[in-house]
């Protein structure tokens, strides 16, 4: 038996058909997003909100900066991502199609990754729908493009963590509303844990711990143009943790 074909308890395999199965599932998931009007409504609504919230005070301030944009966008993402992820597993459970997916020659890890990547691609499309904002601002004044790139990268990593949390929450229940609320609560708590208004007044040790755990302070770094490798590793660790929990829930198959 070749090394590539050795069975592997984690479900990670190097076989080419595994990559093909992930690709097929990603394609199917993306088709289900884009064949539905909900995807376009979400994209339009997100772009409209972002534009309105940004441009409303922009001309009053009269400064070519995206500081405010990166200040409110995480909150929009916080509301948006649970709405995207709530159906990922809940819907499969409700329809019974989870039995189809998990009895096909694809491991639980591969199925989880396929769902995750498709949602991530969808979120990238949504983030790209706001690209007109930096483009417009850059026409109006001297925009620091480094800060824009860092901000978008920060948004990408923040979204990646929220997606992993949302997908995990969706695996816990058949009910999409419960999935949405659970995901929203976890994302919200994790985000605000290191917000300055939370840390103020806390004992030093608690504040230090929350500063490390929370996502708000890390995103603030990115929004200022600072990309720290530790922040990237922390985000990726959270993504891995919640995807791993997602796999554990699927492997237990406790639902009926």
């Amino acid at each position: 038996m070749s090394l590539e074909k050795l069975p592997n308890k984690t479900g990670f395999t190097l076989e080419p058909h595994a990559i093909r199965s992930i690709t097929v599932l990603v394609k199917k998931e993306l088709a289900s997003y884009f064949n539905s009007p909900i995807a376009y409504i979400l994209i339009c609504a997100f772009a409209c909100f972002a534009n309105w919230l940004f441009f409303k005070p922009f001309f009053l301030v009269g400064e070519a900066t995206l500081r405010d944009f990166f200040l409110f966008l995480p909150w929009l993402i916080l509301a948006l991502i649970p709405a995207i992820t709530m159906r990922l597993w809940s819907e499969e459970k409700r329809l019974g199609t989870i039995e189809l997916i998990l009895t096909m020659p694809i491991s639980d890890w591969q199925a989880v990754l396929a769902k995750y990547f498709s949602a991530l691609i969808f979120v990238v499309v949504i983030l790209l729908a706001t690209i007109n904002i930096p483009l417009t601002v850059s026409q109006l004044g001297r925009l620091d493009l480094g800060v824009v790139w860092a901000g978008y990268l920060g948004l990408f990593f923040l979204s990646a963590v929220f997606l992993a949390i949302g997908q995990f929450a969706s695996s816990l229940t058949k009910n999409q509303i419960i999935s949405f609320v659970v995901s929203l609560i976890i994302c919200f708590l994790l985000y605000i844990a290191s917000a300055s208004f939370i840390l103020t007044g806390l004992p030093t040790i608690a504040a230090k711990i929350l500063l490390q755990l929370g996502l708000a302070s890390r995103f603030t770094n990115a929004a200022k143009g600072v990309i720290d490798t530790r922040d990237i590793i922390y985000h990726l660790s959270l993504v891995f943790l919640f995807l791993w929990l997602n796999v554990r829930v699927l492997s237990n198959r406790k639902w009926k």
């Binding site: 199917k28 539905s36 329809l95 189809l100 096909m104």
Partner: peptide
């Protein structure tokens, strides 16, 4: 395998569904 509750994606066409399963089945 055909489970008791037939696992179908209602929004897909029959051809698309069978193609999806065929691709997943390598």
């Amino acid at each position: 395998y055909l489970p008791e509750n037939v696992p179908l994606y209602d929004d897909m066409k029959v051809y698309e569904y069978l193609r999806f399963v065929a691709e997943m089945r390598n």
